[in-house]
Design a protein around this nucleic acid. Structure first.
Lengths: 215, 215
DNA sequence: TCCTGAATGTGACTTTTGTCACTTTTCATT
DNA sequence: AATGAAAAGTGACAAAAGTCACATTCAGGA
């Protein structure tokens, strides 16, 4: 009972301001909360899409991978969903991306069958879905911008700033190897560029830890 | 009268199979057909989004541009719409992309005010909007893949093949300069790589014209 | 046919990024 | 405190892509 109450409160807190009361009740009724540690794969390339995941708390990174090579696409946070999964209502399909927790996270899983029903019944749902798609498109385009128009050192700095904003801290606890994977580069190159950023006074380097001078 | 009849037939032919009859009638009633020559800008970065454009015939390329630099994102064809414009119902916004005709095209312009109404009334409309968003997302991801994971010579070959498929012809009537812009590279580099492709027997080069050996 | 501007070709060079083969540092265990 | 594995640093080199300056070629109008 306590557990159920807590769950209701959690959902109300994260999603309450997004949906009308009636829909929220339905969501609470049919959704299952899943708790994940950091660095767990929530959804992998090729997985069947059976649920629409809503992030209640924590944070997720969405990345593309092609034969072992990876590239960070965007992050999703509390209140967001993964737009790539929304398609499943229309046509059964599999994931084209990988979603990984980057913090301990709680995720509300809604079976896809409710998607179509809610689309016709709730304007708040329609609004939410369209907003989600649009945000994700915009973020994807921002990613394209970065890869196409920026040099790696600029992308690296942007990456560090984005991370800091996301975590709300100037301290980034990543190894150079992890950063290299997110940016689809190599560890040696990232180490080199980080050293340059340190020389320029933008960051301080420690083992497993980078401290940004400012955002 | 003849003009109106032709217009109705055109819309029915391009969009008829997508929407239920009743919605199609509404579309025909409120939409305005716009005819554009090749290489006309339909929508530019920063433009207000007031209409949802449906491609009736012809073809459009959608590209991102940042201070004079350009990058091709994807193409849209008959029956498609530009997903980036769909957001406008929810929140007034401006375009983040540029849409340019690459063939003489006819486009049906629907005032955005109908979007929300149709979303609640027509399941075919909902399905169409979701499908559009998803297709565009998928294409954007494909573009990200290309930029992130492929070398320029591979991207160039993919570009030529895509063009050929789009136009339904092995002959591509572009200057090296135009290709360089779409791929966000420089003319000299593209000329060099095209020469390599010719040496490998993949293409034949002429002035203003490239002929693919096979798709 | 000749001329001209646009399109294409080319060599020499630079910058950016990636790769390889190591060494050194750091931190958490014994 | 010793040690061992992971993380980070480093020099030398290679590959990919971009830049510059100029030469050549072509297509279409005068």
């Amino acid at each position: 009972m306590t557990e159920a109450r807590t769950q209701r409160e959690l959902i109300e807190e994260s999603l309450g301001f997004l949906f009308e009361a009636e829909l929220l009740e339905e969501i609470i009724e049919v959704g299952k909360v899943k708790s994940l540690e950091s660095d767990q794969i929530l959804l992998d390339t090729g997985d069947d899409l059976l649920y629409i995941p809503f992030i209640l708390d924590g944070a997720i990174k969405v990345s593309r991978d092609r034969d072992e090579e990876e590239l960070l696409l965007y992050y999703i946070e509390s209140g967001d969903t993964c737009a790539m999964t929304l398609q499943c209502t229309v046509r059964k399909s599999v994931s084209e991306i990988r979603a990984t927790t980057i913090e301990p996270s709680r995720i509300l899983m809604i079976p896809i069958m409710y998607m179509e029903k809610w689309m016709s019944n709730y304007s708040s749902w329609r609004r939410y879905i369209l907003e989600s798609y649009h945000s994700r498109m915009t973020e994807l385009i921002e990613t394209v911008d970065a890869i196409a128009f920026m040099r790696l050192d600029e992308r690296l700095e942007k990456y560090l700033v984005d991370q800091a904003k996301l975590k709300g801290s100037l301290e980034i606890k990543h190894t150079h190897q992890q950063i290299a994977e997110d940016l689809h580069s190599s560890r040696v190159v990232i180490s080199r560029l980080l050293k340059q950023l340190e020389t320029k006074g933008r960051i301080q380097l420690y083992r497993n830890r980078i401290v940004l001078s400012s955002i």
